[in-house]
């Protein structure tokens, strides 16, 4: 049997810092990102179910509602054209719950305790988790778009604008990951997290322009729907992918995109601070 714990070398200067250097923090983030992504690769059923649900949404909404709604849309758009940009946001929103689930599971199993007992940047647990979820979201959204393309979705602007639209969807997914991380650290029990993450997402997704224009909603609901971030970002993506004439009167594509970026930045900033604070609180 080899010696498992040979006398350690004398502590080097880097070992005796009170803060972990940035380079090592970045490495730790990448290592944890890879670990979280590997879970999706090794347990493919996770990814399969994570993709079946959005594809089902896409197919059901398009073929069930498409016929009735078609015709009544601005510029006589086909429903798939209206639906696809909105669904990108819906899927990003629903998928972000995975961030909370993953963190709470790690907390429950003692994995986060193990990480926190290592001389590594503690923040890597959060940055690695949100980064992995961003990559997973990019995969799911790409797959969705491919299915959308098969059933008739075509973007009508340049590739740069199309990519900018994708960027907004992913940016929003990333921002929501931090919201979900905060919720996860507050709720902390895996069972409760399952339902807790849908609470904020459901009303925001349905009371929005994701599935339909907001014009036919009652005034009080429309006032909410028109001003909440999911409508704003869905409209921005629609404008970027289909052109400015799909937007409600008085809105410009660049204007909506800028407001979207402001929302995404604000949510990311506020909730990353809250999530970090909540994460620290676990240790007292």
């Amino acid at each position: 049997m080899t010696a498992l714990t040979p006398t350690p070398p004398p502590p080097t200067a880097s070992q005796d810092l009170d803060r972990v250097p940035f380079g090592r923090a970045a490495t730790a983030t990448l290592v944890i990102t890879k670990r979280n992504l590997l879970r999706n690769v090794r347990l493919p059923q996770l990814l399969v179910f994570a993709t079946i649900q959005p594809v089902m949404f896409l197919l059901l909404f398009n073929f069930v509602f498409g016929g009735a709604i078609g015709g009544s849309l601005p510029q006589g758009l086909d429903y798939i054209q209206w639906l696809m940009p909105g669904l990108l946001i819906q899927i990003a929103a629903f998928g972000s719950g995975q961030t909370a689930l993953g963190l709470v599971e790690d907390l429950d199993k003692g994995v986060i305790d193990r990480f926190r007992s290592l001389p590594m940047a503690r923040s890597a647990v959060l940055t690695g988790r949100t980064l992995a979820d961003l990559i997973r979201n990019a995969f799911v959204l790409t797959l969705m778009l491919s299915v959308g393309f098969l059933i008739g979705f075509r973007w009508e602007t340049g590739s740069l604008r199309f990519l900018a639209g994708m960027g907004l969807a992913l940016g929003f997914a990333y921002a929501l990951s931090w919201v979900m991380a905060t919720i996860g650290f507050v709720v902390r029990t895996p069972e409760a997290v399952q339902s807790a993450v849908f609470l904020p997402v459901f009303p925001l997704v349905f009371a929005s322009s994701v599935f339909l224009p907001t014009e036919t909603m009652p005034d009080w609901l429309r006032a909410f729907a028109d001003n909440q971030p999911i409508t704003i970002i869905a409209n921005a993506i629609r404008g970027l992918m289909l052109g400015g004439d799909t937007l409600p009167a008085g809105q410009t594509v660049s204007g909506q995109a800028l407001i979207s970026l402001a929302w995404i930045s604000a949510i990311t900033l506020i909730f990353s601070l809250l999530a970090v604070r909540q994460y620290r609180r676990i240790s007292s």
Partner: peptide, 30 residues
Amino acid sequence: TRIGLAGQFAAVDDYLTGRENVRMIGRLYG
């Protein structure tokens, strides 16, 4: 940098191999 901890429950990742689990901790250790 001077301690090791094994908690009440085995905090290892089911879907990784044994070697990957230990290597990951080594990488996180620096």
